[in-house]
Design a protein around this nucleic acid. Structure first.
Lengths: 201, 201
DNA sequence: TATCTTTGTTGGACCGCGTCTAGAAATGAG
DNA sequence: CTCATTTCTAGACGCGGTCCAACAAAGATA
C-alpha cells in the first residue's frame, strides 16, 4: 500500500508533494469557497501539482475529509488480530473500538468544519463507507468466536459500529467542551454491550 | 413531491412513461450487462423516453435500486406522528420499525440481485443514505420523549436503525428460506431495546 | 560517464452522472 | 381558438474519476 515510510532507501523519482500539503491546500479552499465549489483541479494547482497527481495521493476528493481518521481505522484489523481470544466478544469489540478512538486525540478540522464548508453530505456518505468497513471487520472477528446465531452477530456488529460512529459525530460537534473520544465511545457502547452480552458471551 | 396519484384531474401534458416502466427497463439491463455498464441513456432509451426524462422520475440511477423500498420508508414519519405518546420510547421505536418492515411483503428484486448485477457497492451507499434518514427521523421522535441524555438518544436511534438495516440485508440474502421481514426486524431489535430500555424508558 | 531500472509526474483524452435551459408537445379550461 | 399547465426533449455544461503514453528524476550498475 501507500508506503509513506522513508526508512528504506528511496528508489525512483522522489515525490513532489505529500498528502499533508494536498490536504492543507484542500482545506483552505473548502473554507474559502466551500467544498462543492472547490474542484480537484484547484486543490492540485494550489498545492503545486497536477490534477492527475492528486489522485496519486487520494482516491477521491472526499477522502481529504477523512484523511486524519483513516489511519486510525486502518489499525482496526491489526488490533483485532493482536487481541487475546479469552475475552467475551462484547467486551473485546468494545475494547477495540475504544482503542481505535484513542488514536484520535484531536478532532479532524476538515470534519469539524464540515457544516460551514458545505461538506456535511459528502462527509456523511464517505463516513458511512468507513462504517461499513468497520462493521465488516467486527463481523469477521465475531465469526466463530461466539455460539450465538449469525443474526445476533450481524446485529451486534452493526449496532456497535453505529453507536461508535454516533459518538464520533457528537464528539466532532462538541466544540470547546470536547472530551476524549475514547471515553465517549466507551460510554456509548455500554448499553449495546449490555443488550447483547446475554446472547454472545 | 412526486405526486403519482392520478385521482386529481390530470392537467397538462400526460406522462409518457412511469417509474415502473423505467424501473423494469433498468432492471432488465442490470441483469443483462450489469449495473455499472448500464448507462442512464440506455435505460431511458429502452423505456422509450429521453435521458433527461429519466431524471424526472428518479433523482439518481441508484434510486432505481431502492424504488421498492422508498415508499415504505416514506411512511415512517407519518407512522411516528400517529403514534400514541404513552408508549415507552424503546417499544415505540421498535413498533414503528416493525410496522415499516411490514410494508415490504416481498423482497425487492433489484436489491436481491445486487450481487449478480454488480450493484452491491452502489446499493450499499444508497442504502446508507436511507439509514441516515431513518436515524434522523427516529432521533427527532425521541427528542423530548425521554429524560435520558442526548447521547443515549443518539445511540439508541443509531443502533436501532443499524440493526434494522442489518436484518433487512439478511432478509434480502435469505433466498428461498425468506420469512417476513417484520418478524426478523422485531427479533433483531430485542437486544438493542433491552440494552437501552433502562436508560430511556 | 553512460545506461538501466524504478518510481512519480504530467497532459490529455475519455466516460458517465447529474444539472440546467430553452423550446416544443400534449392536454384541459375558459 | 387561445391560454395555462405540465411534461418531454435536445443539447450543452461542469465535474469526478479512470486511463494511458510520454516524460522526468533519482539510484544502481558497469
Amino acid at each position: 500500500m501507500t508506503d509513506t515510510n522513508p526508512s528504506r532507501t528511496a528508489l525512483g523519482r522522489p515525490r513532489r508533494s505529500s498528502r499533508d500539503t494536498l490536504q492543507d491546500a484542500a482545506c483552505e479552499l473548502f473554507l474559502e469557497v466551500g467544498y462543492e465549489r472547490t474542484t480537484v483541479d484547484e486543490i492540485a494547482r494550489r498545492a503545486g501539482v497536477s490534477r492527475a497527481s492528486f489522485f496519486n495521493y487520494f482516491r477521491a476528493k472526499s477522502d481529504v475529509l477523512w484523511a486524519d481518521v483513516d489511519p486510525a481505522l486502518a489499525e482496526l484489523p491489526r488490533i483485532l488480530e493482536l487481541l487475546t481470544d479469552r475475552l467475551p466478544p462484547t467486551v473485546a469489540v468494545r475494547a477495540v473500538l475504544v482503542e481505535v478512538a484513542a488514536l484520535l486525540p484531536v478532532a479532524p478540522a476538515a470534519l469539524v468544519e464540515r457544516a460551514t464548508t458545505g461538506a456535511a453530505a459528502e462527509a456523511a456518505v464517505a463516513g458511512l463507507d468507513r462504517m461499513l468497513m468497520v462493521r465488516v471487520a467486527l463481523r469477521r472477528y465475531l465469526s466463530g468466536r461466539s455460539t450465538a446465531p449469525a443474526e445476533a452477530l450481524d446485529g451486534f456488529a452493526a449496532a456497535a459500529t453505529a453507536v461508535a460512529a454516533s459518538a464520533g459525530v457528537a464528539w466532532l460537534d462538541a466544540g470547546s467542551a470536547r472530551q476524549p473520544l475514547a471515553d465517549a465511545v466507551d460510554a456509548a457502547l455500554a448499553p449495546v454491550c449490555a443488550g447483547y452480552a446475554p446472547l454472545l458471551d
